[in-house]
């Protein structure tokens, strides 16, 4: 039950993009078309799940075991960037079609603050291994939801008559603000 709560909390109630502002760069950059948004969402979810597992292990068996918690940021960022690199090589070998659709997004994921944020939050909240993984999947699903909704709105926005000074980034930010308002409606759903 607790696992389910963590999942729903990360995916909807405390959506990473709309309440913690993590992963804003891809959120604004890759949300122009629906199909790329879906692919980016899947790639991020995949990396997030692996990151949650690996950083948990690193934290428990290296940082805490050798009493060097101040190396947390350095080790996490190295772990994440090498993980992304490995995933890229693995996908290229195993499934070329998948690589063609996800490939260009993978390098971008390294500097996605949502990934490092996820690892830090999981440590901060002292999740167990299984809880961390559910947290990672939930955060990824939440990111995908936000990205896909945003892409859907922006495709419609192409045909709207937006004042000249608000075109582009400002309008996207305003739409994101309204989305965040809408997601505030979920706030009372869970007490986590």
């Amino acid at each position: 039950m607790k696992l389910l709560m963590i999942f729903i909390s990360a995916a909807i109630v405390n959506n990473f993009v709309l309440t913690y502002f993590l992963g804003i760069c891809p959120f604004l950059g890759v949300s122009r078309r629906l199909d790329t948004a879906v692919n980016m969402g899947f790639a991020t979810t995949f990396v997030m799940t692996l990151t949650a597992a690996i950083t948990w292990l690193i934290h428990k068996y290296i940082l805490v075991a050798f009493n060097v918690p101040f190396l947390e940021y350095v080790t996490f960022i190295i772990a994440i960037s090498s993980l992304v690199q490995f995933v890229e090589m693995f996908i290229r070998k195993m499934s070329p079609p998948l690589y063609r659709s996800l490939g260009i997004f993978l390098p971008l994921i390294t500097t996605n603050c949502a990934i490092l944020g996820l690892a830090l939050f999981a440590v901060l909240r002292e999740y167990t291994f299984l809880e961390s993984i559910f947290f990672g999947v939930g955060a990824g699903v939440g990111f995908t939801i936000a990205l896909v909704i945003m892409a859907g709105i922006r495709e419609e926005l192409e045909f709207a008559d937006v004042p000249q000074s608000l075109q582009g980034a400002p309008m996207t930010l305003l739409v994101a603000g309204m989305l965040a308002l809408a997601f505030m409606g979920f706030a009372g759903l869970l007490s986590v």
Binding site: T19, A169, G177, A180, M184
Partner: peptide, 10 residues
């Protein structure tokens, strides 16, 4: 709240 941040910056 979060929504205000997006709106203000926009």
């Amino acid at each position: 709240l979060p929504a205000g941040a997006f709106l203000t910056l926009g």
